[in-house]
Simulated assay, not measured.
Amino acid sequence: MIRADAAGVGKLGDRVVNRLGFGSMRLTPRADTSVAIKVVRAAVELGVDHIDTAAFYVSPGGVLDVGEGAPRYATELIREALHPYPRELVLATKVGPWAETADDLRAHVHENLRRLGVERLDLVNLRLTRRGGSLAERFRVLADLRAEGLIRDLGLSNATLDQVDEASAIAPVVCVQNSYAVDLRRDDDLVPALAARGIAFVPFFAIAGPRREDGASDDHDEAVRRIARTHGVTPHQIRLAWTLHQGPNVLAVPGTGDPRHLRENIAAGAVRLTADELAAL
């Protein structure tokens, strides 16, 4: 069985993690939460030590089959699956959307603390609703919470390099989470620029690409299909492998609620693409 360490390791701040992590966004749409819990546990059993989540990953319409019809949050499912957490596990969460005031941001942080069942969050990414513009006021709120000991590390999501530099003048930025894939390439220049600053790049939608929240499809470029046949893997695995090949500071967090897809995603970390294959892609 291929494990997450097949992709090698990278750094989130001063913590070393396997470059193949797990994203929790696709846990909540599944009505049977027992399967979601099994997937999270299986990810950790396969060596995943970096899990991405968010305060706003919640069941559609706020309702799942959980007795009284209360909404289920990905953070709650992670807690149910893994608490007390393995010492080496890094839990990264996101706050920001729909937070219009400093008090809203603080409330999102405290909500994450409560739902995850921890006294300090490993990593909090400020999710920006648009690329560009000043983020200083909002990032200072998180920096203050970090100074209070409620957050270990800070990052950004959906950010430009200018925004990274603005935030870094306030507090250290350990990672940037942006949408990025073989057919979603607006951040080609950002990845090496972050590497030069010692900042990890954590792409989301590496498999879904331009389909984003709609998820992966079977509509792949012929080069992706051809290279997948050569390696005896799926096109989705080639898309993920391509992402990992973009730099040693790239940490992938593919999300799934399916046990088979979880194993395939982790196995993609063992795929080694040639220079010619990378050029074709």
Rank of each mutant, 00 (worst) to 15 (best):
L251A: 07
I238T: 08
D258F: 04
N18Y: 12
A43P: 06
D221F: 10
G10M: 02
R197Y: 04
L190W: 10
A200M: 07
L251K: 09
L278G: 08
E137P: 00
K94A: 09
V176N: 04
R120A: 15
R72S: 14
D218I: 09
L240G: 03
H50Y: 15
V90D: 00
V90Y: 00
L123G: 06
R152Q: 06
D219R: 14
P97L: 12
A195V: 09
L113V: 12
A223N: 13
A7I: 08
D189G: 14
Y73L: 10
H245K: 11
D162G: 07
R186Q: 15
A279W: 05
I199E: 04
A268Y: 03
A31N: 08
G117M: 08
T243F: 00
L89K: 08
L145T: 10
D188S: 04
T53A: 13
R19W: 00
H261T: 10
E137K: 10
L190C: 12
V58H: 03
L278C: 09
A252C: 05
E88C: 00
L116K: 02
E68W: 06
R3S: 14
G10F: 02
F56T: 06
V9C: 01
G13W: 00
H83T: 06
A195Y: 08
V48Q: 03
V182P: 01
L126V: 12
P259D: 10
A4I: 05
P210Q: 02
R19V: 11
L244S: 03
R152E: 15
T101A: 11
R211F: 06
L46Q: 14
Y180G: 03
R263N: 04
T75C: 13
V202E: 11
E88R: 14
L251T: 11
P192T: 13
L91W: 05
A42T: 14
S217M: 04
H108N: 11
A208M: 06
A279V: 15
L91S: 10
Q177V: 13
A36E: 02
E264N: 07
L27G: 04
P235V: 13
L113Q: 11
G67H: 08
S168C: 01
L145Y: 07
T101W: 09
V63R: 15
W242M: 05
A159I: 13
A43T: 12
F204P: 00
R140F: 03
V224Q: 04
A74D: 07
D183A: 12
A4S: 13
V63P: 02
A6I: 08
N249T: 09
T256Y: 00
I207K: 01
A81Y: 03
T243D: 01
A267I: 09
R185T: 15
V164T: 11
P84A: 04
G269S: 05
V118K: 08
R87Q: 12
E222D: 15
E68V: 11
S34N: 05
P259W: 09
A275M: 00
A275L: 12
A136F: 03
H231K: 09
P172H: 05
T93L: 13
F205V: 11
L27I: 10
T28P: 01
A102I: 10
A107T: 15
V164Y: 07
L46H: 14
A193M: 10
G209I: 11
T234E: 10
A43E: 04
R226D: 14
L27P: 02
R115K: 15
A74C: 10
